[in-house]
Write a protein that binds this DNA or RNA. Structure first.
Length: 508
RNA sequence: GGUCGAUUCGUCUAACGGUUAGGACAAGAGAUUCUCAAUCUCUAAAUAGGAGUUCGAUUCUCCUAUCGACUACCA
């Protein structure tokens, strides 16, 4: 097999949604798995829909995900340029080649004329199609005399080049994911390949020409392209490139979490969770949230996305990018569309949070502490994080989970106080304060041992005492092991907080 | 409407014609703990329907239903 070369070829018409990111990811994984190359090509042949900033957004998204581009926009390469708008000069030649070989023709019908025909047909309950049946009665180089065609072109009339779809021919195609597909050309129309108005090709032509020129070996793209696969097969044949034609794999679509239809860019964040990898500022001022800004770790995001439509057939769920590269195969991609589960996405993030090193998490916590007016060292932050990291789903949870380790409570949770801070318990707290004060070694294990002995010896109410201690130290009724926190804040601070609680809280 | 595609627990999915149809998220119950999470254990939960092929069908074929994509001088 020739070298594996795949491409991700988005159109810069807005932010890349997670379906697009998944397509890029699968292309990347396939390339890595096969020792091949991953290219990024920008398909900006629609000048009408171009959105400023979209290309930068795409590049930044891939970077954040850890998807490295080997060749293409942003990195260059032997087939540069990789932006189709910068390649516009090369497409006309290929379009004309098709006209000369009889596979395409000039058409002069205006958009208005065609729209009128469409509405007229619709009114009759029919569908207009520019095809073998209708092309003879429309304005094109097949129906018009040669002089007329020449005159129109010379006069600067606007024209397009359309593919001349063969009549009643079965196109036999193979798709790596979907298997064998047969389509009869009679159901297809004469697609526009090139338009003189902006001297730009349409997707179909540009795509085939560039994939050929860039020596693409596999086209891995969304299922929405399946209906145009026969056209693409026929284009390869018309150009005489069948032998070097890439293999195709059409990925199942990502569906809207609620309602119906495929996920789209316009879905923004109306579902209460992001559909974009990064926060997106649309030109109209609308801001949509991103996975990055919502606190997802890129590894968790990639892991979650990889499993949406693919799995290796084992029960493994947590994969590093390296493992994904190693195990990915198109044969294991499922055929049906996937609706994804926001809860599971959170679960993945929590898994990566708890697996992260204390130092890494401390790096996330430190700025939050600073914001809260707390100055501490990276070591202290790492120690704090070690105590609570399996309780965090997102980086932003870290502050709430550790704040009481750096700052004595300013108020005490009313509900907990009412439940536990009773006269008899407060008496125990006074005793406990003295036991703590007498401790020579202030360390979790030994302190806990001594306190427990005291409780057991006096057959005291363990739960009540511990909860009161928790209220005094943390101000709230829940959290991690209380002795770990006491050890963290130290003996002096522990005593200070107990004294403060004793002085400040009214008995319930 | 037409063409194509898809259909396994609520969701993501596993099971190269032979399994008590497996796992994960979510849900429920229990264990554990000083509390809350986490963790562990358990429970409930699915082959869209109907024909056929076969000794045997989640798996192959056909029909129906449902869902989806496409049906632009958009990608």
């Amino acid at each position: 097999m020739s070298k594996v070369r795949v491409r991700f070829a988005p159109s810069p018409t807005g932010a890349l949604h997670i379906g697009g990111v998944r397509t890029a990811l699968y292309n990347y994984l396939f390339a890595r798995h096969n020792g091949g190359e991953f290219l990024l090509r920008i398909e900006d042949t629609d000048s009408q829909r171009f959105v400023p900033g979209a290309e930068e957004y795409i590049i930044e998204s891939l970077k954040w995900c850890g998807i490295k581009v080997d060749e293409g926009v942003g990195v260059g390469g032997p087939h540069a340029p990789y932006r189709q708008s910068e390649r516009k000069d090369i497409y006309l030649k290929y379009a004309l080649q098709l006209v000369e070989s009889g596979n395409a023709y000039y058409a002069f019908d205006t958009a208005e004329e065609l729209n009128a025909l469409r509405s007229a047909c619709e009114a009759k309950g029919e569908t207009f199609s520019y095809d073998a049946k209708s092309r003879g009665s429309l304005k094109n180089s097949l129906s018009l005399p040669a002089e007329e065609v020449k005159r129109r072109i010379d006069a600067g009339d606007q024209w397009v080049i359309r593919f001349k779809m063969p009549e009643n021919e079965n196109v036999e195609m193979d798709d790596i994911i979907r298997g064998h597909i047969t389509i009869n050309t009679s159901t297809l129309d004469d697609k526009v390949l090139y338009k003189s108005a902006d001297a730009l090709p349409t997707y179909h032509l540009a795509n085939i020409v560039d994939d050929h020129l860039m020596e693409i070996s596999h086209v891995i793209r969304g299922e929405e392209w399946l209906p145009s696969l026969p056209l693409h097969f026929l284009l390869y044949r018309a150009f005489g490139w069948t032998d070097s034609q890439p293999l195709f794999a059409h990925l199942p679509l990502l569906l809207k979490p609620q309602g119906q239809g495929k996920l789209s860019k316009r879905d923004g964040d109306k579902f209460g969770f992001p559909v974009f990898p990064l926060e997106w500022h649309a030109p109209d001022g609308e801001v949509s949230m991103g996975y990055r800004e919502s606190g997802y770790l890129p590894q968790a995001f990639v892991n979650m996305l990889a499993l949406l439509g693919w799995n290796p057939g084992t029960e493994q769920e947590i994969f590093s990018m390296e493992e994904l590269c190693e195990q990915f195969s198109l044969e294991k991609v499922s055929k049906s569309g996937a609706r994804f589960n926001a809860e599971k996405a959170k679960w993945f993030n929590a898994q990566y949070m708890r697996a992260a090193s204390d130092e890494f998490l401390a790096g996330l916590l430190l700025p939050q502490l600073k914001e809260a007016g707390i100055d501490t060292t990276a070591e202290r932050a790492a120690d704090a994080v070690a105590i609570i990291k399996e309780r965090a789903t997102f980086p932003k949870d870290l502050l709430d989970l550790t704040i009481y380790m750096f700052r004595a409570p300013e108020s005490y949770d009313e509900k907990s106080v009412n439940k536990f801070w009773k006269e008899e318990n407060v008496a125990y707290m006074r005793e406990l304060r003295e036991i703590v004060a007498d401790l020579e070694v202030f360390e979790k294990e030994s302190a806990e041992h001594i306190v427990r002995e005291w409780i057991e010896a006096g057959q005291l109410p363990m739960g009540k005492i511990m909860n009161c201690l928790r209220i005094a130290i943390m101000g709230i009724g829940q959290g991690p092991d209380i002795f770990s926190i006491c050890e963290f804040i130290g003996k002096e601070e522990t005593l200070r907080r107990i004294d403060a609680a004793l002085a400040k809280i009214q008995t319930a």
